[in-house]
Structure formats: structure tokens, C-alpha cells
Design a protein around this nucleic acid. Sequence first.
DNA 1: GTAGATGCAAACGCTTTGCCGCTTA
DNA 2: TAAGCGGCAAAGCGTTTGCATCTAC
Lengths: 127, 127
Amino acid sequence: MTAKRRDTRQRAVIWHALDEAPGPLTVEELFGVASQQLPRLGIATVYRTVKMLEEDGEIVLVKLPDGLSRYEPASREEHRHFSCTRCTRTFDVDLGPQWPNEVELAGGFVIQHHEVTLFGLCPECRQ
Amino acid sequence: MTAKRRDTRQRAVIWHALDEAPGPLTVEELFGVASQQLPRLGIATVYRTVKMLEEDGEIVLVKLPDGLSRYEPASREEHRHFSCTRCTRTFDVDLGPQWPNEVELAGGFVIQHHEVTLFGLCPECRQ
DNA sequence: GTAGATGCAAACGCTTTGCCGCTTA
DNA sequence: TAAGCGGCAAAGCGTTTGCATCTAC
């Protein structure tokens, strides 16, 4: 279904920014980073590009409880998201304890998957 | 700091709808339910009312990964949120396994709190 | 009677879309 | 050279605010 994609500078810069980041980036953060290398970049292009990359399975959408859309490379191994309550940046951290899937809860609810977001202080902010 | 509140029909109807619900309701859902009893109700009133109720500590804001704001009575005991992947409704379910707080993760991250959202099928939808 | 609350519409902020000129293949 | 892409501006959509009116007290 995926249409033919062209190799553009915008796509490369945006992908690179995501690949370098220590965790998922919001469109706004991505726009800030990418704009430095592409001054005429429009925010709409960022939105369209992340949608394409997501369609192509190169990146994944991460939704944290703040409601903002964040993206990160799909290639990262399974992990949790840690949101710093001070600097508000989001990091990838190790998986840690698991939650049982396909388990039936009292009341007849069947869990298919779950999402955990950790909140606290990142190494820089705890100082 | 809380200003004097007046006892209005709108406030009563909105509170009642939240109190009856099996889980947190979005503003849209709340508006739908409350409108049946208050045909001239405006959506802005719902937004203002939930903000007031939240300020007064009567209800709490629940943010699920879909980014929508939901509200539920603050009096409910601790629980998880279960989001049905079929009917999209959200329910309160028992707490289940806990995640350790105040623990330091590898890398120097300190967890202050965490949020878990469970996804799956509700009793009605699994049939 | 009066401060607080409501309804309506305009304003907002984030995201998406339309249009059209530009670029990649 | 043509279809995909990017930039810009307008449109959407959920949420908030301004304002005149209404109502609880």
C-alpha cells in the first residue's frame, strides 16, 4: 500500500534527529532540532514526514498521558518511557517488571496489552 | 482560594453523570449524557464545571494515552483504567500488581510515580 | 440586588489539508 | 517530465475565553 517514497533532505534530517534522541520526541521538539539544519522547514512537513515514517514502519507513535504525540525509531528494543517531572523530557529506560497479557481480570475484562509511563527525575535533574 | 460556588442544576447533573459512570468520562461523553436532561446545555459549561469540580477536589483528571481528558469522582479507591479496544469505553478495574515507587533505575532515573493503562476487551465486547 | 454561572460565539493551540511550485528519479 | 514532496496558509477539532444575560443566595 505504501506509495513510492523519494529520498529527501527533510526526511533524512528528521529521521536522524529521532535516531539520535535518548527517547521519543514530540513534533515540536523535532521541528526545533530539524529547523536548525533546514531553516525554511515548515511544521506541516514534520507532521507529514512522521506520518510517512510511521506508515512505513520505521518509527512508532508513543502517546504519554500528557496527550502529546511523540515518535521514536521502531527498531528500539522493548522498553518503558520515563518522563522527567522537572525538565519534562522523555527517556527510554529498561523494561523492568512485566504485566501479564491475555489475562482475564475480575469482572470479565481481557487484557490484550498495556502501557506504563514512569514519572520522576532524570539523572541531570536529580542533582 | 476556592471561590464561593453556587448550587446549580448543571453542576448537579454533571456530577451525577460522573458518579454513575463505570469509569472516567470524556467531556464529550459527559456532554452527551448531561444534555439529555439539560437540552440547552453548552459544552463550555461542561468544561468549566469539570474544572471547578477538579479544583474543589471532587473529581480527578484522568489522562489516558489517547490524549483525551477524562474525569471521575476523586472518592474512588485506587484502581487501574481499562480501555476497551472495541467500544473504546474506559472502565475502572482492580489495582492488581504494583510498580515500586521511589526506586532508582539503572542510569540514575528516580521513579516518583507511574501510570498504567490496560487495553483489551470489556465483558460486553468479548462476547 | 449582586456576584457567580451559563449560553453563545469568537478565540486558541495543535494538527491536518489544499494548493501549487519545487525536486527527485 | 511526472509524480512525489515541501512550504505556506487555510481549515479542523478539541478546549478556552469574552461578554451579555440569567440565577442562586
